[in-house]
């Protein structure tokens, strides 16, 4: 994914918003959301929860599902009403224990999806999350690129040791 001057929430699919925002410092996101949503009415549509989820994986030999293990999971689904009367709902499910963080992410999801007042500030967070994700992706690709095996015959290329 590339970073441009367009609105991030227009470029990045909603299915990736929470992934990108969760790369950021939880306190930063919570503080931004608290500031932005001051005076808004935010009520849970379902009880915010922190617990575990079973990770089900398909074995790629015989295509049978099995449980690889468990992961932490926090979930939130909120209804948002702004002082101007705009109404939206947003939700988040993240592999963390932090309920305050997941509720803030759910509010971000609602703000971005419905372009609520001040959504540009959350869009900026999305941009920061994307930059962080890109750095991580780059780091991983570096690992692969630097260790790619060249199976060319030895007499067809210069010996690695001589470089």
């Amino acid at each position: 994914m590339s970073v441009t001057t367009e609105k991030m929430s227009s470029i990045v699919d909603r299915s990736q918003w929470i992934r990108l925002l969760s790369k950021l410092d939880a306190e930063q996101v919570v503080a931004e959301v608290n500031t932005l949503s001051s005076g808004w009415q935010i009520t849970p549509k379902s009880l915010p929860q922190s617990g575990l989820a079973m990770l089900k994986l398909e074995d790629s030999a015989y295509n049978e599902p099995f449980y690889l293990g468990e992961i932490p999971l926090a979930t939130a689904w909120v209804d948002i009403v702004t002082p101007e009367g705009s109404n939206a709902d947003g939700a988040a499910q993240v592999m963390v224990d932090n309920l305050e963080f997941v509720q803030a992410l759910a509010v971000c999801d609602g703000i971005l999806a419905n372009r609520l007042p001040g959504y540009e500030r959350i869009d900026e967070l999305l941009r920061q999350g994307l930059e962080q994700c890109n750095r991580e992706e780059q780091r991983r690709k570096n690992m692969l690129a630097a260790t790619r095996v060249d199976f060319s015959l030895l007499d067809a290329v210069e010996d690695d040791d001589e470089n």
């Binding site: 947003g90 939700a91 993240v94 991983r140």
Partner: peptide
């Protein structure tokens, strides 16, 4: 060896959404 995206259905849209990743 790598990172497996953990996908869960979004409560609002139902679309699979990434909740995190696990190294496996």
């Amino acid at each position: 060896v790598g990172y497996l995206p953990v996908m869960l259905p979004h409560p609002v849209t139902g679309e699979l959404t990434e909740a995190g990743e696990v190294m496996i």
